[in-house]
Each structure stands twice: as C-alpha cells, then as structure tokens.
Simulated assay, not measured.
Amino acid sequence: MGIYVKQAGLFSTIQDLGRTGFLDQGVVQSGAMDGIALRQANLVVGNQETEAGLEMTITGPTLLFTKPAIICVTGGGMTPFIAGKRKRVGSPLYVPEGGVVSFKSNQTGMRAYLAVAGGLSVPVVLQSKSTYTRGGMGGYASCALKQGDIVELQENDTILQSFNKKRESQQFNDWFIASTPVKKQTEVRVFPGPHLNWLTSESIASLFESPFTIGNQSDRMGYRLLPEQPLEFAETKQLLSEAVTLGAVQVPADGQPIILMADRQTVGGYPRVLQVAHVDIPVLAQLRPGQSFTFQQIDLEEADALFEAQERDMTQLKRAIKMKWRQLGEGG
C-alpha cells in the first residue's frame, strides 16, 4: 500500500522528466510541464531529481497515506494541507500512517508537484514512468488518477528514520526552498523560429508588442493562444512536416498561434515562427487559460546563457539540500 486516492482532483498524473530518446520512432516525450518544480520537490525529499512525482492541475486530489512518508509539494498552483492543517510549499513534510493530504488552489498558478521520499512505484515504460494519456502509456494505468486508485510507494527508510529522529528530539529545524512567485501577467522569452519571416511585417511587430491570451482549448499537448489580431502570412506557402520541439510556436492558417508543450507530437506541418527559451517553459506551465502574457525577444546565445545559469542554480540547490540532510543525520 502507499497512497489511496480519496478524491481525484481535476487532472492528476504521474510524471518524471520524460521519455527521451524515442522521438525518431514517433514516441511522445511527455514528462512534467514544470520540470523545475518537479526536480526541486524530488531533491527536497532526497530523491534523484529524475524520479517520478504527482503532477496536479488547478484542483488537487485528496490522498490517504497508508504508511508514513516524507513528501514535498512545489509549484505555484496550490497549497498543501495535512490533516486539515496548512503546510508550507517547498518544505519536507511528514505524513503519518493514515494521514490525509489535501490541497487548496491558489489564485495564481496552474500546477503543483508532489514528490515522496523513495519515489512512486509504477511500471517503467521506455525508460520513463511518465503518463501519456492520449497514447495509453506509462504512469498509473496510463491515465489520470481517479477515486479508489492505490499508488504504491518505493522505500526510503533512511530519510524517514532521520526525519523522525530529529522531530522526536526537537532538533529538527523547519526549512524550505523558495518558489518563484507566479504573476498574473508576465513575459515569456523567445528567439526567432525558422519561419518568422513568412509573416507580414505588421504581424512580426505585433508578436512583440501585443499580449496573447491562453485559450480554453489548451492542455499538456499545446497552448492555443488568442492574439488581439490574427497573425497573417505575407504569402501562402506549403511546408512539409518536420521535427518539432518543446516550446515551438506554430501558426496555423487561422493566425492563432500554438505553443507546443510536454505532450506535443513529434512532427508538425505548421510554420514555426518563434521558439520559447527553455528556462521559460515552467513560466508557461503555471499560466492558466484566460491569463495573458507578452513575448520578449532574445537571441539563441542569450537563451543558452539563461539555461546554463538555471542549471548552475539547480546544482547549488542540490548541494545545499544534501548538506541540510547531512546536518539532520541522513549521512549521505
């Protein structure tokens, strides 16, 4: 036993960092929409950052833990409660046997992530535990969690014993990692895609001058954007389907852009006018339908530098958390 799902929430799936290495065979990558939040949650509970956790969307589930566990919740979408008591996001939290974890949606933020020390015990499919619901692959029964599901836990007794020992001796100091605040309106950094110049000069200018609203027909596959005015092409051209990437901004004939997200297809035939910098994919992942943002243009070199800086920050965070657990007696 491990986690019994008392209430399912809106859309909760098991995700890790994705099913990489199979795009050439037409296998969708999937993985966490906000990969930074999932990595942070795993690090806090002593897991490898690649371990699978629970991705929760807007409305979280109610979970009954049938055995003690250490958990961490990250992301801007919701606040955790244990036995009805509000808990801090980004902190290691003890859940006793029979403890109930629930969530309250925040006014901002779209998703939250729950990691459990030791990880979730579900089958590994093509080197990943990630759920791809459209393809019936991975996760728990290849679909979103529903009431009555039971997710088994992998063991991490070392972390649990260390945590319990410090709590009982009252030597445990509450600590947490800071989350990036989610704004109601923000900027998303992009660099030009291969077909940007297919648009009219007016449409190119509007890409960086006018806000875009995330449409209701948005999901893990892609965000459909509502511009103030549909984008227009300078002339009609035909494009053969070609490989697409996470964060590619495509423009179909109706002039309403689509940003490809975690469950994107492997190839596409729409012109790609922009590419979202990888560091801002988590920003998009936390924006809800109806929220607006603007594109900020940068170049590829700046996008690379931002990614390198982000990874340096993650490395420093990993070291700091390991030191904290050593101080608490984990010893690893």
Rank of each mutant, 00 (worst) to 15 (best):
T57E: 02
P211N: 13
E152H: 15
P68E: 10
E97C: 06
D280I: 14
E242R: 00
E301W: 08
V95F: 11
L17P: 06
G77N: 11
T59E: 07
F176M: 12
Y94C: 08
D149V: 06
G331K: 09
G332D: 09
E49R: 08
Q291M: 13
F11I: 01
F295D: 00
A253Q: 00
K67H: 15
L306C: 10
N216A: 14
G136Q: 14
G21I: 10
V73M: 00
A178C: 05
K183T: 03
V249Y: 06
T13S: 02
G84Y: 09
P230I: 04
T50Y: 07
P61I: 09
Q154V: 05
E152A: 15
F65V: 07
D280E: 11
A285R: 13
G60R: 12
R39A: 15
S162H: 09
T133F: 12
M314F: 15
L23D: 01
S30I: 06
Q238C: 05
A234H: 02
A253K: 00
V276F: 03
L246F: 14
L231A: 02
V273I: 04
E330V: 10
L54C: 05
M1E: 10
K183P: 01
K129A: 11
E168H: 07
G76W: 10
Q310E: 14
L239W: 00
S206T: 15
E168Y: 05
S12G: 03
L317K: 12
R19F: 05
V95Q: 13
L207H: 03
N106P: 09
P227C: 05
L43F: 13
A285D: 15
L126T: 00
L246N: 15
D313S: 02
E301S: 14
Q25L: 15
K237N: 14
T50R: 15
L260M: 15
Q316N: 09
D263N: 05
P68H: 05
L328R: 03
T79C: 10
C143V: 01
V89H: 04
Q107L: 14
F22L: 14
Y270S: 01
Q256T: 08
V73L: 01
L284M: 12
I3P: 02
